[in-house]
Each structure stands twice: as structure tokens, then as C-alpha cells.
Design a protein around this nucleic acid. Structure first.
Lengths: 193, 193
DNA sequence: GACACCTTACTGACCAGTAAGTAGAGTCGC
DNA sequence: GCGACTCTACTTACTGGTCAGTAAGGTGTC
């Protein structure tokens, strides 16, 4: 018999889940294996068994994000661009509620202190996210649901950058995120509720 | 006699200057007193003499930023808003060239790992910067030099957030900063060169 | 001789990472 | 249906490095 979740998958996944929370709230450099092992009720070396180097954990974390993001994009590829944008906003709200920031935000901020392998994964991840943002506004424009000046590249990039920035600012000023979401809607010429 | 720069001021200033570079490129948690003392050719304890706790250094760093920013704002208060925006863009370019990100970016990203005193200073600093951004676009609109949908609060906040975010993204994708600057100009209805 | 500005020398905490051992579950030969 | 073997998933115990921070002493200048 081969259960869906054996012990191996289970602990490994719990480690990744905890590491993810820690990274998005404290940053990659600011959490240790002890934070994870303590919370998980295992010894430090147990984490090293699954992820020998912290770099391995970091890369696994980013790669999981990339897979998750790819599935996320594909799953809602057929939805109208404005709806996709709204879901993106909801995702940001969820991060805010958990006192976290988005992965690309923390990874790009810490970039110069990250091991090369993580930088590489981060670069791919961020490029994929930006491309997606550009795509949304491009298709929104093509469908006549979004209206704006400039190119889809410019508009998609500013949306992505502004969301990343406002999630960080929202830690200090709770209104920043709502303010930015609202302004993006206006700048995209989307109808208001 | 009281020279403009005695030894005290001198070393203290050098420490702050080095700490600033380190914080903007690596982050506050990712540099140590040894990074500074090594570069400066003094012993670790010399840094502790000027800044007993690392928290003291961090707060001094942010407070110096706030004073510098206040002077910067005042010095160009009479300039037309579009010119002020251009200078803001040039400042961002300078950060990019030095492989750094803006102080509000690193501080808000690391916020949850910072000592309370630094969080307090950071909150004030970020509020001042956002207020300034809102003011620029408000006065730009009033003067008829900027045209946009939504409120000055919304537009100023998105400009600030997008600049912060794009400086981080530019570490991974060099075009992000230029893209965002250009798009901001378009969104503000400013004439293009 | 008092003070500013350092030094040497140290402490204790935390960190990532490693080596060697072990408990338990599954597999195989017979 | 049972002992021998093997593998996974840990454990205990440790190392060496880095860190912030401290105490006490020295040195030059006013």
C-alpha cells in the first residue's frame, strides 16, 4: 500500500509550510532551523535531513512557489482579465492579513545576501510574475475591459511594482494597500462598485 | 578652537556612512559591526563606543535620513512639481546604479525583525515620504501640470509604492525602473521628451 | 588630571552544518 | 512465519564560526 501522504512527504511539507510563513514575515536571513524545529517538535538535525543546507530549503521554497504560481495562472487563464486582477488583489489582502509581504518583495529586498542558487530561482520567478501582470493588462485592453495610456509592459510592470511596494508600506500604514488597489482600478479604467 | 570636523564627528560620520551603504544593499540584519570596523580599520569596540547597541546605530541611521529628507524637501519646495518628480527619479537612478534599494523599501521589508525603536522611526519616516509624494501630485494637479484620475492620495501613494517596488525589481530586471518611471509620467499626463 | 576615543580581551548566545547512532517498518530468503 | 538485512526518518552530541555586547586598560589632547 502506498498512502497519499506518508511520513516523508508529511514532515517535508510541514517544514516548507513553516519556512514559508517565516520567510514572508521575517525574511530568509532572519529565520533559523531552530524556529522551524521548535515549532515542529523535532530536532534541528531533522530539518537538515530533509534540506541539508539552508540554501536547499530556500531553493525548494522558491521552486514550490513557481509551480504554485504556474498552476494558479493556468487555472484561471480563461477568466476575464478584470476578474483575474480582482483575485490578485484578494491574494494581496490575504498576505496583508497575515502580516506578510509577497515573496518577490522579500526576495528582491534580500537579494544581495542570498546564495547564488536562490538568486537564480528568484530571477525566474519574478520574471514569470511580471510577464503575467503584463499579460493581464494586455488582454484586458484587447478585450476592451481595460483602458490606459502607455504600453501593456509599462502598465503591467507598474501594477506589479506598486502591489509589491504597497504590501510593504501597508505594514506601516494600513491604508496604503487599499489606496493602491483603488488607484489601479481607476488607472485601468475599470468600473467601480 | 573647534574644527568643523573633529575626530569624534569624523569617525561617527564614517560609521554612519558605511552602515548606510550596508543597510541599503544588504539590509539591517545582514550586516555586522565587523563589516564596518573592518572597512574602517578600527576595532569592533570602537563602533560600540559611538553606538553602544546596534539598535542605536539603526535609529541614528533612520533619523539622519529623516533630517536629510526634510532638508531635501524644503530645499526644492519652490520648484515646479514635475521638476521635483524628475529629481526623485534621478535619486532612484542613483540607488539603482549603486545596487541599492530605497531605505523605506528595506526597512518595511525587514520590519518584523527590527527593534521597536527602529520601527517607530521607520513609521514616521515612511509617513513623511508618502505625504511628500501626495503633495507633489496634488500641487502638480493644482498647477495644471499634472492630470490624472482619482485623488492625490491615491496617485501619490501609487507613485511611491511603485518606485519602491520597481527599485527592488530592477535588481533582477534592469528595465523595471525605467519602465515604471516612464509609465508614471504617462499616468500623470506629463509631456514626454 | 580629566576627558574623548580608542584598544585588547573576553563572554554567552546563536548559527549552520556534521557524524554517528537508533527505532521502526518493510523486504527477502527459506 | 521467522531471522537477517535494508532503508527511511529521525535522534544525540558535537564543531567551528559569527554575532552583539562588555569590562578594563591605554593614549593623546586640552
Amino acid at each position: 500500500m502506498k498512502p497519499e501522504t506518508d511520513a516523508r512527504t508529511d514532515t517535508r511539507k510541514k517544514i516548507l509550510d513553516l519556512a514559508e510563513v517565516l520567510m514572508l514575515s521575517r525574511g530568509f536571513n532572519a529565520f533559523s532551523y531552530q524556529h522551524i524545529s521548535g515549532e515542529l517538535g523535532v530536532r534541528n538535525a531533522a530539518i537538515h535531513y530533509h534540506f541539508p543546507k539552508k540554501t536547499d530549503l530556500g531553493v525548494a521554497l522558491i521552486e514550490r512557489y513557481r509551480r504554485r504560481f504556474a498552476r494558479y495562472v493556468e487555472a484561471q487563464a480563461e477568466l476575464p482579465p478584470p476578474v483575474q486582477l480582482d483575485r490578485y488583489f484578494s491574494l494581496a489582502d490575504a498576505y496583508y492579513d497575515k502580516q506578510q509581504i509577497c515573496p518577490s518583495g522579500i526576495l528582491s529586498a534580500e537579494l544581495h545576501t542570498l546564495p547564488p542558487e536562490m538568486r537564480q530561482s528568484t530571477a525566474s520567478f519574478v520574471e514569470e510574475m511580471r510577464t503575467w501582470a503584463v499579460d493581464i493588462v494586455r488582454r484586458g485592453q484587447a478585450a476592451g475591459a481595460m483602458h490606459y495610456v502607455g504600453t501593456p509592459e509599462g502598465m503591467g510592470t507598474i501594477v506589479f511594482a506598486a502591489m509589491q511596494g504597497s504590501l510593504q508600506l501597508a505594514r506601516l500604514d494600513g491604508s496604503a494597500l487599499d489606496e493602491v488597489k483603488q488607484q489601479i482600478r481607476l488607472l485601468l479604467g475599470m468600473a467601480q462598485a
